[in-house]
Amino acid sequence: MRHRVLVCYDISSDKRRDKIAKACESYGTRIQFSVFECPLDELKHQQLKAELESLINRDEDQVLFVTLGPESGDASLRIDAIGRPYTKRSRVVVV
């Protein structure tokens, strides 16, 4: 079964960022400068993760994989990260 996965990245090097973008273009559609929507089955998801992991600097870069659920539209959110760990941000608004 294929799932909709958002791939979002924060890459500190222009050269690495270009390589990440090129790799992501092979799997999905760019929806923002550093965000791709990719319809992936489990094998393609693991292949993309491995490919991107080989391109990043684990101390400086971060790639998030946000699984939105099956392509059928049922939503179930899962967030995985490689590189810098993902931390949930507080929702406190300061005005």
Rank of each mutant, 00 (worst) to 15 (best):
L43Q: 12
E42M: 02
I31R: 05
L6S: 03
C8V: 09
R91A: 15
E37H: 01
L40D: 04
L48F: 06
I11E: 04
D74C: 01
E51C: 09
A21G: 10
K22C: 08
S76T: 12
E71Q: 14
A81R: 05
S13N: 14
A75Q: 12
R91F: 09
V63E: 04
L48P: 03
Y27G: 05
I20E: 01
V63P: 02
L55W: 04
G69V: 02
N57V: 03
S34I: 05
V94P: 05
C24K: 02
Q62N: 12
I31Y: 01
S54R: 11
V92W: 10
V92N: 14
L68Q: 12
C24T: 05
S72Q: 10
Q47F: 00
R89N: 13
I56S: 04
L55K: 15
L64M: 12
D14C: 02
V63D: 04
A21N: 09
F65R: 03
I56H: 03
E71T: 15
V7L: 00
Q46P: 00
V92Y: 12
G73E: 08
Q62Y: 06
F36V: 01
T67C: 12
K49G: 09
G83L: 01
V95C: 03
V66S: 11
K49W: 13
G28K: 06
A21Q: 09
C24P: 03
S13A: 12
T29C: 08
I82A: 06
V94M: 08
K15L: 11
G69S: 04
T87S: 11
C38N: 01
H45P: 00
D74S: 08
K49D: 13
S76L: 08
R58G: 13
P70D: 10
K22R: 14
V35S: 04
I56F: 04
V95H: 03
D74F: 00
L64W: 05
A50L: 09
H3Q: 13
A50W: 04
D80I: 00
K44P: 00
S13M: 07
Y27V: 06
L48V: 08
K49C: 11
T67D: 15
L68M: 14
P70A: 05
R30C: 10
P70H: 07
G69L: 02
R89M: 12
R17F: 02
L40P: 01
Q62T: 13
R4S: 10
G69C: 02
R58V: 15
L64D: 07
A50H: 11
E60S: 10
V94I: 14
D41W: 00
G83S: 07
I56L: 11
L48H: 06
S90T: 15
Y86S: 06
L6E: 03
V95R: 00
K49M: 13
R4I: 10
E71C: 11
R78M: 10
S34W: 02
K44R: 13
I79M: 07
K88M: 11
T29N: 12
E71V: 13
S26N: 15
S26W: 07
Y27C: 07
G69W: 00
L48N: 07
D74P: 02
L77R: 15
K15S: 15
E37M: 05
P70L: 01
E53D: 12
